[in-house]
């Protein structure tokens, strides 16, 4: 059974269509990412699942049951907020035990459960501190423990790693992933960071202007983008316009070509001028201009490097050219 189902769900704020007739289905136990630029509707979708927003139209179901008329406090989901939203007047243990306290659990029981949850996020011994005495990474773990202690069937994470520095972010990515595997519950997380979405999720929905541009596995999204928007947003794919694609394939549609698929060769189908280069350690990123089309190539570190201003010949494997459904 699907954990979360959207049937033509819309959420309009006045004239703004934040979410516009979105349909999607998230399976139980899935690690699902909602990826998109800011204002694309991904966070509104998450808030619709949590119940902080009500749909203007359409139906939302959790485990088959319609929930659009249910307030947040009746839904079997819990949220990790972007700003963590820890209660500043409560210590860490009481923050984690808050939901259990509301549910009427006795003090000793809920403190025991809260301590167990804190252990799960590796914060044993922090129970007596105030949230203000914790670092950003620790606060995030408390927020995670506070949601998980409620044993939700779906955990919602709103840009959970956005406020952390790079090293902490990578560490938390691994931890979230293993937590999800260990608990076996559905994780839905919202992010604008494509590498985060691709590395963590089982499935990704790419949002654009209130609609889902593509849903698929990270491999689908990365190697087989269906629209130019997806190709552009997920990694810095080169987008070849239809007229150029027509020249090589005879098909009249745009195509995506990954930077690492471009090779500089002696004879090939496309001429381009090198306009910029940057050294990335494991590779060299070369920016090219082919007939006023900007292309990026990623050359392996042992490949010969061209000079800026030089005109080179480009080639690629036909299988790397991914035809798309239109702009």
């Amino acid at each position: 059974m699907s954990a979360v189902t959207f049937d033509d769900v819309s959420r309009h704020f006045g004239a703004v269509r934040a979410v516009d007739a979105v349909s999607l289905s998230i399976a139980e136990g899935e690690f699902f990412a909602m990826l998109g630029p800011s204002g694309s509707g991904k966070t509104t979708c998450l808030r619709l699942i949590a119940g902080f927003e009500r749909p203007s139209a359409g139906q939302i179901r959790l485990f088959g049951a319609p929930v659009q008329d249910q307030p947040p406090y009746r839904r079997p989901v819990n949220t990790v907020f972007q700003d963590y939203a820890l209660f500043p007047h409560l210590n860490v243990r009481d923050n984690v035990a808050y939901g259990l306290m509301i549910a009427g659990q006795a003090k000793t029981d809920r403190h025991r459960d809260a301590d167990a949850a804190l252990e799960m996020v590796r914060l044993t011994g922090y129970g007596d501190r105030k949230p203000s005495a914790l670092s950003g990474g620790q606060r995030q773990r408390v927020a995670l423990a506070r949601a998980l202690v409620m044993k939700p069937r779906v955990l919602l994470l709103d840009e959970p790693l956005g406020a952390l520095d790079l090293k902490l972010r990578e560490q938390m990515q691994d931890e979230l992933k293993s937590l999800q595997r260990q608990l076996g519950i559905t994780f839905i997380f919202v992010t604008h960071d494509q590498s985060e979405a691709l590395s963590m999720a089982d499935r990704v929905a790419v949002f654009n202007a209130g609609q889902i541009a593509q849903t698929g596995t990270p491999e689908d999204i990365y190697f087989r983008p269906e629209t130019a928007f997806v190709a552009d947003f997920v990694g810095s794919s080169n987008i070849l316009p239809a007229r150029l694609v027509h020249r090589f394939t005879g098909r009249d549609c745009p195509a995506a070509l990954r930077p690492e698929a471009l090779r500089i060769v002696d004879t090939g189908p496309l001429l381009a001028r090198v306009t910029a280069m940057s050294f990335l350690g494991t590779a060299t990123r070369v920016v090219l201009d082919a007939d006023s089309i900007r292309l990026t190539a990623l050359l392996p570190k042992d490949a010969p490097r061209p000079h800026i201003g030089e005109t080179v010949t480009l080639d690629w494997d036909a299988s790397d050219l991914h035809l798309m459904a239109g702009a």
């Binding site: 119940g51 947040p72 406090y73 949220t79 939203a85 209660f87 808050y98 939901g99 409620m150």
Partner: peptide
């Protein structure tokens, strides 16, 4: 008081009065 604080409380099962 950030709005998310009140949403978090509702998310954890608290009715508006709680």
């Amino acid at each position: 008081v950030p709005p998310s604080m009140l949403e978090a409380s509702g998310d954890l099962g608290a009715k508006p009065f709680q």
